[in-house]
């Protein structure tokens, strides 16, 4: 059992018999008032997002999901194909159900596929993945007039902020929990 103060990005809870994941979370406490937990929750089956505000002390059942080790094979339209590492069965997960995870899926990546009551509804990624930068502006060394970050596009199409010294073609590590740059990979 979770209470409202356990709510955070990534927590999975049951609401109306369906599994939801917290995708945005804001703690609010208007002057002298009570703590309010404002959340956006994504239905892990339909992909639809709802807004809910909870008060301190409200409780939730955790969404218990089965995890199976699988490998990402390839993408076809908005269908993502995975293979079960144990029995080599192939399954398909829709882009909608993958949510942000689609930004970090590269061929042959080992993931945990989540099953809710025997239905594949999403994947759990390793905390860190390495992805190649395919597009970013070059940085003039010593130029301090520019911002601390610049945008970079990765091989999956995902765009994020990286430190200015990162160059096109470099491999970088992303923290999949936050979607942020973690470090440069020495090759």
């Amino acid at each position: 059992m979770y209470t409202a103060s356990d709510l955070r990005k990534g927590l999975k809870v049951i609401i109306d018999e369906e599994p939801y994941i917290v995708t945005a979370f804001e703690f609010s406490k208007p002057g002298k008032g009570q703590a309010l937990y404002r959340t956006k929750l994504r239905n892990m089956i339909t992909g639809l997002t709802i807004d809910r505000t909870y008060r301190e002390g409200e409780t939730f059942d955790p969404a218990s999901l089965e995890e199976r080790a699988m490998q990402f094979l390839y993408k076809e339209g908005d269908h993502y194909h995975f293979m079960d590492n144990q029995n080599f069965e192939q399954i398909i997960i829709s882009e909608e159900s993958l949510g942000d995870a689609k930004n970090f899926l590269i061929d042959n990546l080992n993931v945990e596929v989540l099953l809710f009551r025997d239905r594949a509804i999403g994947v759990e990624l390793p905390n860190f993945v390495n992805l190649r930068v395919i597009k970013t502006e070059t940085w003039v060394r010593g130029d301090t007039s520019k911002a601390d970050f610049k945008p970079a596009t990765l091989e999956t199409g995902y765009v994020l902020r990286v430190p200015p010294f990162i160059e096109e073609g470099e491999l970088i590590t992303i923290d999949t929990r936050t979607g942020e740059f973690s470090k440069r990979v020495k090759e």
Binding site: S5, E26, F27, A35
Partner: peptide
């Protein structure tokens, strides 16, 4: 106690 968020 327990006050943590982007503004706390």
């Amino acid at each position: 106690e327990r006050e943590r968020g982007s503004l706390h």
